[in-house]
Amino acid sequence: MDSLRGKTIYEALGGPEGIRSLVEAFYPKVQQEPLLGPLFPEDITPVIEKQYLFLSQFFGGPPLYSEQYGHPMMRARHMPFPVTVERAEAWLGCMSRALAETVSDPELRAAVLERLKGPAYHFINS
């Protein structure tokens, strides 16, 4: 893909600042999404921070999440929550809108969404 040109997604997104911008654009959308909002705590700050750590690592940056919390084991961590196909798609929709706000390169937006589809659908448990 031309927009990555040997870079990790983490680097292409702008490193820590780019990941932070994406996560901060994403979570207000999640909170407003009727299928997702009720699954999250009112104080979403800790969730935002964990997502920042995880996406940094997931997209090829430093292993921030693992350093703080151990192996991500994201499917297991999501098991207490009813994750349906509809919720996975709503989550991806929120991410798509956040990417549209924070990433100008359409190829990079597509690569990020493609990379996130695997986990989003892997977490389905209901």
Rank of each mutant, 00 (worst) to 15 (best):
M1F: 12
M1R: 11
S3H: 11
R5E: 10
R5K: 10
K7I: 04
T8V: 07
T8G: 02
T8Q: 05
I9M: 14
Y10N: 00
E11R: 13
E11L: 08
A12R: 09
A12G: 08
L13R: 03
L13N: 04
L13M: 15
G15R: 13
P16L: 14
E17P: 01
G18D: 08
G18E: 04
G18I: 09
G18K: 04
I19R: 01
I19A: 02
I19E: 01
I19D: 03
R20E: 14
V23L: 00
V23M: 01
V23E: 00
V23C: 00
E24I: 06
A25K: 09
F26Y: 13
F26D: 01
F26E: 02
F26Q: 05
Y27P: 03
P28T: 09
P28R: 02
K29C: 01
K29E: 11
V30P: 05
Q31G: 04
Q31M: 12
Q31R: 14
E33F: 03
L35W: 09
L36F: 00
L36D: 00
G37R: 01
P38W: 11
P38I: 10
L39R: 08
F40I: 00
E42V: 14
D43Y: 12
I44S: 08
T45H: 00
T45A: 10
P46Q: 01
V47S: 11
Q51D: 10
Q51S: 14
Q51C: 11
Q51R: 12
F54W: 11
F54D: 04
L55E: 06
S56G: 15
Q57G: 12
Q57V: 15
Q57H: 13
F59W: 14
F59L: 12
G60Y: 12
G60F: 08
P63G: 00
L64A: 14
L64C: 10
Y65A: 03
S66P: 12
E67T: 11
Q68C: 09
Q68F: 12
Y69R: 15
Y69N: 10
G70W: 13
H71R: 15
H71P: 11
M73N: 15
M74I: 15
R75K: 15
A76W: 14
R77W: 02
P80N: 08
P80A: 09
F81V: 13
F81C: 06
V83G: 05
T84V: 08
E86F: 14
R87K: 15
R87V: 11
R87P: 07
A88E: 03
A88K: 01
E89D: 11
E89I: 01
A90Y: 13
W91F: 15
L92W: 12
L92I: 10
C94Q: 06
C94P: 06
M95K: 03
M95E: 01
M95A: 07
L99C: 05
L99G: 04
A100H: 14
V103L: 05
V103G: 02
S104T: 09
D105Y: 05
D105H: 03
P106F: 05
E107H: 10
E107G: 15
R109M: 07
R109G: 00
A111F: 06
A111Q: 10
V112W: 02
E114F: 04
R115Q: 04
R115F: 03
R115V: 03
L116C: 04
L116R: 03
L116Q: 04
L116A: 05
K117F: 02
G118K: 08
P119L: 07
P119R: 04
P119C: 03
F123Q: 04
F123P: 02
F123D: 02
I124Q: 06
I124Y: 06
N125K: 03
N125C: 04
S126D: 08
S126W: 03
S126T: 00
